[in-house]
Design a protein around this nucleic acid. Structure first.
Length: 852
RNA sequence: GCUCGGGUGGCGGAAUUGGUAGACGCGCAGGACUAAGGAUCCUGUGGGGCAACCUGUGCGGGUUCGAUUCCCGCCUCGAGCACCA
């Protein structure tokens, strides 16, 4: 490749400005109590989802969201806000540990290297972060407070009356037993079936299983003693509080769906002396129940099964237990099941119905048992058809509905005292009836399960817990942080024992006391990092009351972070977990907002140039370092914002980068021109004269448009407007510096290096200009009168089609305009011989003549 | 199957309390400058037609003086969820 000459010396001035900002701490945000804190300034908290510092470095998806928040942050600063715009590292995680397994090197070393590389890359893009607030979830000082928050969960329970988290000490005062108290903690131990991977040496979350299997790891199900967090106690609030948030509707729906609230009733059936409770959302169809199904693992199956069916039932249970949840539920396969031989008595009419077991009923949802109403449930219908079980209609579908199996609302029939009632009324009536007879009750069920919180890894926060005589105890807060000991090797044992159990001297505290050896999942650190940024160096508390009140003040809204930008991949993980922790901290009085993130925006994925997802195997990965080297940081920033709407998925294009690079070069050449030797020399066409009308118009239209577009996160159209402005200024023979300086000022949030560099030159040459960096200046006000034209162009339509355009005075009276329109020869071609029946005038825009 | 979000030139995209479709950029074509241009500048660029004009925002209807925008019915792409009783 031949040598290419840069169109402007970004490689020289970009690093220089980055050092300038770093040295002057230009973007340091003062906290309440700090010397330069101005209490009159409103705050703005712009947050990026902090990255996991992987070994492969930044990819172009990171700067997309980061540039968006950076532009908004710089803009808000200019608008007089005290802006919190921090960055940090989600630095616990499996890859660093796998590196350690291979090399024997402590994961901290690998993590630090990666963090250093990420920091270098981010700094090379000129983001206006307050680097004094940088945090890493692996920092001992950070781990300390993550563990401290865990202890708050451990020491809390949810009051049944208020639904709020309360200190566990209240239960101790009431004299509850140790067992009762432990069973109510927000952080508790339970034996539960989990996904265990022997070669990874840890349990995995359900949603991680597929990913690791695809990479060739084995994952099996087995019951293990695990730490859980009682997120289910917050299910209602996690759904209800979504309403007040400025989040994409799609993400809200994902969370609602994930939490999965459904209202219905529990109904008790009697089966051979035992009571089997089922959950249904359609208690109104109780008269139509023609059989019952238990999950194969249901504890009552053995008691119910008759002798003759014993073998068939056992065989079926065996087949089911070997299937994973995914195999059972993944592809909608044909219904299977086995009759237990037992019969249940329908409480509403005393009829006997057969009890089956089938794997389409899950032990983990509801009560693990259902009443089957084949006439009004598709799954039951399918099952009943296959096994020749009767179908009884109990809901009359509205007129015209021909479905064999009708699942909607209608009118109850064949249902005794419910007959004639509409579905919602019937539901209510039967539920009241069941409650009266103590045969059931109104119930709300959730899909959400408690959060499996322990991992058997090394590279995570150890639990601040010790064990003695089979009981767990919190360690004293003064002992935090509790750090993991050094290990000889990090290889998994292959047994479902946490890897920290290898560190016997660390584990064994004598007197029969041992440490908990599990560690927390990566989510622990990301659950509260947005709080720590507000007061990152506080060693007395995870956040001070003053910092919390100021930075998270919400002005009546639920959430405190003003803008949170990141990908959709965390929709039901991080974003749900963080909301949960925040609510616990709220209940316990540590924060004053109910929600953490008021406004959330998801940036769209950037695809490769080929329209495919970027991946090493596809060979379409774009390296930001490479782009910065060829075109500069400003070009990268500007291109990623110019590609299209922030939320949209869009493909990369190097030609597109070239396009914005040319635009920046044109801005550069408003100030500089190359002489014979190719050296950049300041141009002589700059003037202190007042701009003319047209120049004022475009410049002030740009101020207005760019400001509004930034507020609405429409960066692509803001850039387009600045291009138009630059093009117009390029055409001027004499360029008023005043206009140019304004363009540079509005360009500054987007292309901070180039704009500062050029402004630095201007302000030296023209002492009348503001003698401050652009970053320290105020956002300009636009002058509305400059935007008004005296002469405007009016479109003239005949029957809705454009036939002519005329230029008229802005204040022209309507009758005169109508007359002018009709006089147009081009219009008359289409109106001749026709009757004009109507003239529609849109002021300032068009005239439509209706003729036929 | 359900939920959400899309479908506009050769490409990324702009415009919707209904009012000039295609801003801006890329690409392409022609020209200028030049020893040279893969730099820069100028001009053109949805399709058809020499032209006047005709036509055009996934498809089919509707409302309207006027629809990319609103309504009804489809097709299609992407993302997520998926036997949740």
């Amino acid at each position: 490749m031949s040598q290419r000459r840069n169109q402007f010396p970004f490689d020289e001035f970009e690093p220089r400005w980055q050092q300038h900002w770093e040295k002057n701490k230009t973007f340091a945000a003062p906290n309440p109590g700090d010397k330069n804190f101005d209490v009159k300034k409103p705050k703005f908290y712009a947050l990026d989802m902090f990255p996991y510092p992987s070994g492969s470095g930044l990819h172009v998806g990171h700067p997309e969201g980061y540039t968006a928040t950076d532009i908004v942050s710089r803009f808000k600063r200019m608008k007089g806000f005290n802006v919190l715009h921090p960055m940090g590292w989600d630095s616990f995680g499996l890859p660093a540990e796998q590196h350690a397994i291979k090399t024997g090197e402590h994961p901290r070393i690998n993590t630090e290297n990666n963090v250093n590389n990420f920091r270098r890359q981010l700094k090379s893009l000129g983001f206006a972060y307050d680097w004094d607030r940088e945090i890493a979830t692996t920092d001992p000082e950070y781990v300390k407070w993550t563990q401290w928050i865990f202890l708050q969960l451990y020491k809390s329970y949810v009051c049944e009356k208020t639904g709020k988290a309360r200190p566990i000490a209240e239960l101790e005062k009431k004299g509850l037993s140790r067992e009762e108290i432990d069973s109510r903690r927000l952080a508790f131990v339970a034996d539960t079936p989990v996904n265990w991977s022997p070669d990874l040496g840890t349990v995995l979350a359900n949603e991680e299983v597929e990913e690791w299997r695809a990479k060739g790891h084995t994952v099996e199900r087995r019951p293990l003693r695990q730490w859980m967090l009682r997120i289910t106690a917050f299910a209602d609030r996690l759904i209800d509080d979504l309403d007040g948030l400025d989040w994409p509707e799609g993400i809200k729906n994902l969370q609602r769906n994930w939490i999965g609230r459904s209202e219905g009733a529990e109904v008790n059936f009697s089966v051979g002396g035992e009571t089997v409770t089922v959950f249904t959302t359609r208690p109104d169809t109780l008269f139509g129940a023609t059989y019952m199904v238990l999950a194969p693992e249901h504890p009552l199956v053995d008691k119910i099964t008759t002798k003759t069916q014993k073998k068939a039932v056992k065989d079926y249970q065996k087949v089911c237990s070997s299937k994973s949840d995914l195999e059972r539920t993944g592809l909608a396969t044909e219904k299977t099941g086995v009759f237990t031989g037992g019969n249940a008595i329908n409480p509403v009419n005393g009829q006997e119905i057969p009890v089956w077991i089938a794997d389409y009923v899950m032990m983990g949802y509801g009560t693990g048992a259902i009443m089957a109403v084949p006439a009004h449930d598709e799954r039951d219908f399918e099952f009943a058809e296959k096994f020749k079980i009767p179908v009884i209609q109990v809901v009359q579908a509205p007129e015209g509905n021909q479905d064999k199996c009708f699942c909607g609302n209608g009118v109850a029939i064949n249902s005794g005292f419910l007959d004639g009632l509409s579905t919602p009324v019937a539901k209510q009536n039967i539920t009241e009836w069941l409650e009266e007879k103590k045969l059931g009750k109104k119930t709300i069920n959730f899909k959400l399960r408690d959060w499996l919180f322990s991992r058997q890894r090394y590279w995570g926060e150890p639990f601040p817990i010790v064990w003695k005589d089979g009981k767990h105890f919190a360690i004293d807060e003064s002992e935090l942080p509790l750090l993991a000991p050094e290990l000889e090797d990090y290889k998994p044992t292959g047994k479902p024992e946490a890897i920290l159990s290898k560190a016997t001297t660390w584990v064994d505290l004598g007197n029969g006391t041992t440490r908990e050896t599990n560690t927390m999942p990566q989510w622990a650190g990301s659950c509260w990092y947005y709080l720590r940024y507000c007061d990152a160096r506080n060693s007395d508390a995870f956040i001070s009351t003053e910092a919390e009140s100021y930075w998270l003040s919400a002005d009546g809204k639920p959430g405190g972070v003003d803008l949170y930008v990141g990908g959709t991949e965390h929709a039901v993980l991080h974003l749900l977990y963080a909301r949960f922790w925040h609510k616990v901290l709220y209940d316990l009085g540590h924060v004053k907002t109910v929600e953490p993130f008021q406004k959330l925006v998801n940036q769209g994925l950037i695809l490769g140039e080929d329209g495919q997802k970027m991946s090493k195997s596809a060979g379409n990965v774009v390296n930001p370092d490479e782009v910065v080297k060829l075109y500069g940081a400003d070009s990268l920033r500007l291109y990623e914002m110019f590609m299209g709407p922030l939320e949209q998925v869009k493909p990369w294009s190097m030609n597109g980068v070239e396009g914005v690079y040319r635009f920046l070069a044109r801005v550069w050449r408003l100030v500089f021109e190359a002489d014979q030797e190719g050296e950049w020399k300041k141009r002589t066409h700059l003037t202190e004269n007042e701009p003319d009308k047209a120049t004022n118009k475009i410049v002030h239209a740009t101020i207005k448009k760019v400001g509004e577009d930034i507020e609405n996160l429409n960066f692509n159209t803001a850039i387009s407007q600045m291009m138009v402005c630059c093009n117009e200024l390029s055409r001027l023979e004499v360029l008023p510096v005043k206009s140019l300086a304004t363009l540079l000022l509005v360009l500054n949030p987007f292309a901070p290096h180039l704009s500062e560099e050029l402004y630095g030159v201007l302000r030296k040459a023209f002492p009348k200009l503001e003698q401050k960096d652009l970053a320290s200046q105020s956002w300009p006000e636009y002058e509305p009168s400059y935007l008004i034209e005296d002469e405007i162009e009016i479109v003239i339509q005949v029957n809705g089609k454009v036939r002519d355009r005329i230029t008229v005075n802005r204040e022209i009276p309507q009758p005169e305009l109508e007359a002018l329109a009709q006089q147009s020869p081009k219009v008359q071609v289409f109106t001749d011989g026709k009757t004009i029946c109507k003239i529609i005038v849109v002021p300032g825009k068009l005239v439509n003549i209706v003729a036929n």
